[in-house]
Design a protein around this nucleic acid. Structure first.
Lengths: 199, 199
DNA sequence: ACCTTATGCTACCGTTCGGTACATAACGAG
DNA sequence: CTCGTTATGTACCGAACGGTAGCATAAGGT
């Protein structure tokens, strides 16, 4: 008897599932959920509708898959920035600079997909439940960063600084998506650099 | 020959245009633009479709009207909060408390309509150009508040504090819309209270 | 009274939406 | 070679979308 893995018989699929998800992530990110039709998705992915439905379920499940994938990648990138930034107060400044570089990039201009989804969709659709998860994971990363900046800070204060920085960054993602220039984003971050100096 | 002003003859309309706009504002605010159909609008307003189109144009123009109206009301409410809050650092704390009271209200849970619109729609539709206007007017109000808090502060620092507070409040509106509890919002604002104390 | 103007309302338009039947093509297993 | 399985692609479905034509009617002005 073979293992529990069933043999993958039948015609192999011609498209790369991961590449398709990457393409569709960019599209949802740009246009939002409601403004992206299944025909748009077919055209962008090059995969015909029945194959999409067989592979990803319906539009809603497809979007949930995209969001899940985006969330893990985003948090990974976030953690990577914090690791790169190093420790001490300079680490926080470094992190803000890394965040800015990401913010003014091509995708950065579109803000955050999770923030966009939680703003557009309420309850009845996916994207909503991802927002609190995103906030929490973001908070864990920032707590690490802030703890390393001033190791002997009281936990309450670390928590407060984490909340401040996190909510501020969420606001910045809104600003980014609403069409701010690179200079404007730079100026916004300057305000946070000054605040960090008082920590 | 009469004057250039044409006489307003004919049957007067039966519905209150302003009341309808109020109702539709709440609806768009809850559901977003894309998720609100014209049939939803007909049902919510009690006005039939042809009357709506005659009065407000098409769906897009109707939404623009709603946004414009919301923007002025929102800024007025914002300025009113700042006026109520008074001067000094206590004034800033007062303002944050007033903001919190508004945030946990029924409409407050839906965040900000402008933020929602600028997140959902990009360029091709209204809501986008309102975002920068909203940010600027919000900034003017906050500059007043912050200038009154510490009258002898350098303009650069006032600008930085304005940027920080404004972007933070935008982030808070995202948090509000993504389903945060009243306690969570209170905790978030605590972080800003602490920061304000260092000003 | 009469004409003008705008109304409420029904029914409908063409288009696009998300989602599917169906026939066929490419594999592995016997 | 045949059979079962899974993918592909065309063509299509009913429903919902935003938007309108048309008509009887109600409220002015003169």
């Amino acid at each position: 008897m073979s293992s529990t893995v069933t043999a993958a018989t039948g015609r192999p699929r011609l498209f790369d599932e991961d590449a398709v998800l990457t393409e569709l992530t960019a599209m949802f990110w740009r246009q939002g959920y409601g403004m992206t039709s299944m025909n748009d998705i077919v055209q962008a992915s090059g995969v015909h509708k029945p194959s999409l439905y067989r592979t990803f379920g319906n539009k809603e499940e497809l979007f949930a898959t995209v969001l899940r994938r985006y969330l893990t990648e985003r948090i990974t990138a976030f953690a990577s920035m914090i690791e790169q930034a190093g420790t001490g107060i300079d680490g926080v400044h470094q992190f803000l600079t890394l965040f800015e570089a990401d913010a003014v990039s091509e995708h950065g201009r579109d803000g955050c997909l999770i923030v966009m989804a939680s703003n557009e969709l309420r309850g009845s659709l996916p994207g909503y439940e991802f927002a609190s998860d995103y906030r929490q994971r973001m908070g864990e990363c920032l707590t690490t960063l802030i703890s390393q900046a001033r190791p002997d800070t009281a936990p309450d204060l670390i928590q407060a600084r984490t909340d401040l920085l996190r909510t501020y960054l969420l606001g910045l993602e809104v600003v980014m998506r609403s069409g701010a220039t690179a200079e404007e984003i730079h100026q916004q971050l300057h305000a946070m650099h000054i605040t960090v100096d008082s920590w």
